[in-house]
Design a binder for these strands. Structure first.
Length: 440
DNA sequence: TCTGGGGTCCTAGGACCC
DNA sequence: TCTGGGGTCCTAGGACCC
């Protein structure tokens, strides 16, 4: 029987690395990528981290570093990052028999039985660097939790010389180390670096005198379950080398779909909120069509800004059940707007709204047709065709080409709810109008 | 002035049932 | 005085992930 072996491959400072592909001047400089609305930093180059910029740092608090330290800030360009991600994932997939794309910048691979996994992983990351120009790191180990940990070591060994042995930089394979060597690494690694240990549990562990990965590994799993949870117990077992989390290379359809946004500026009026909610609900329906599901309940929420506690606060959500499970954009938008009407209160500065589709189920559970008459069935089919046409046009010509009337027709500058993105780079790889131009 | 967005899993407790 | 017990389902909230 072959021993289990997993790899975790991920992009270094991924969004920043994507931006650097098309603007080499960004190399060696502190760079951050900002969230929607240019609100806070969601990716940082090593140089930006060295300036002390934390993940999630609000832009207005760090923007003085633009002048003082040459910090470059860019608005998130998700169209670009998604496309670069696809390219990396297809190259990475060749390393293992099976691949689980875990997030936009990382994937797990099943390497069980692969001879010379370390050398193969080095070759793969070299190819990704040459072909796509994005640096990556690979962690290899018998469980996914350990592969994550190995990946952390590979990154730190490269980024912070002296933290770990230099030979573990970029690719770290724990399976080829001795137990003593592994323990030495675990003893140098804070428990908070473990996949599954967040700020809350990390603090509790520290208070209990468990500071390092080695401390955690040496706890009795049964005690961990009793004192913390089955989740942490599973983590401990994984750290001890027993696989408890399998590779998920065929992710199930999502159980819920959300589209939520903070507004570019405060919004007070119902009409404007209706525009936003129509847009969010349409996008959510589009995602729903993408996984061929139906929803049976639509949640809509609006809220003021929690960061302005002195201003009047209001936050409410409501769930509007659909008569029958559906993927009809018109029906979903209608439900969201009906909910909005019921929760809206005048006199507040709204900062955020969102639409979530709940109770998703496969569209093929066509049970509802049995309960409908012939006319209704025909109507359903016409609606489905209309939805497909709507999606197709928007996929082909760009989101927002065809919208519902309630989404509003006023131009962008007049819409306070649309997000600010003042520093977005061109969508070099996905938009003909924004190709990189080279002049002699 | 200015603070993201989208998910999953687990647990505790209440409602309900027999 | 004294007020069963066990099972299931649902929901809200907490914790985690990137």
């Amino acid at each position: 029987m072959t021993l289990p072996l997993y790899a975790l491959l991920d992009g270094n400072n991924f969004y920043v690395s994507c931006e650097r592909i098309f603007d080499p001047r960004l190399h060696g400089r502190p760079v951050v990528v900002l969230s929607n609305n240019d609100g806070c930093a969601i990716a940082r180059s090593d140089e930006a981290k060295a300036l002390g910029i934390k993940m999630g740092a609000p832009w207005f608090q760090i923007r003085h570093l633009e002048r003082e330290a040459g910090l470059v800030a860019l608005s998130a360009n998700f169209a670009l990052y998604g496309d670069i991600s696809d390219r990396i994932m297809s190259l990475a997939a060749r390393l293992g028999d099976r691949q689980e794309v875990y997030s936009i910048d990382e994937c797990f691979l099943d390497l069980a039985g692969l001879p010379d996994a370390t050398a193969q992983a080095r070759a793969t990351r070299e190819q990704i660097l040459r072909w796509i120009d994005v640096p990556t790191c690979v962690g290899i180990a018998p469980t996914k939790t350990l592969a994550k940990l190995a990946n952390h070591i590979a990154k730190s060994a490269e980024r912070k010389p002296g933290s770990y042995p230099a030979r573990l930089a970029q690719v770290c394979n724990l399976a080829e180390l001795s137990e003593r060597q592994r323990d030495w690494l675990y003893q140098r690694t804070p428990v908070g670096e473990v996949w599954g240990v967040g700020p809350r549990i990390g603090r509790q562990l520290n208070e209990a005198g468990i500071a390092t990965v080695l401390d955690l590994i040496r706890l009795d799993p049964a005690t961990v379950k009793a004192r913390w949870s089955v989740v942490l117990e599973r983590t401990v077992r994984e750290l001890r080398g027993t696989p408890c989390i399998g590779l998920d290379d065929a992710p199930a359809p999502k159980q819920q779909i959300a589209v939520t946004r903070s507004f570019g500026q405060r919004v007070t009026g119902l009409a404007e909120l209706k525009e936003a909610v129509t847009d969010f609900a349409s996008r959510a329906a589009h995602k729903l069509h993408g996984q061929d599901s139906h929803t049976s309940a639509v949640l809509v929420f609006i809220r003021t800004s929690p960061f302005k506690p002195q201003a009047p606060q209001y936050s409410r959500s409501i769930i509007v059940p659909l008569r029958l499970p559906s993927s009809d954009t018109l029906q979903i938008v209608g439900a969201a707007l009906a909910g909005l009407d019921r929760i809206y209160r005048a006199g507040f500065d709204y900062a955020k709204a969102g639409v979530m589709l709940l109770d998703l189920q496969p569209a093929t559970q066509g049970q509802q047709e049995l309960e409908l008459g012939d006319d209704a069935v025909l109507h359903e089919r016409r609606q489905a065709r209309l939805m497909r046409a709507l999606d197709a046009v928007n996929d082909r010509f760009g989101r927002g080409t065809l919208t519902l009337g309630s989404a509003g027709l006023c131009q962008e500058p007049g819409r306070r709810w649309t997000m600010r993105q003042e520093r977005r780079t061109p969508r070099y790889t996905t938009c003909w109008d924004e190709l990189l131009t080279v002049s002699a």
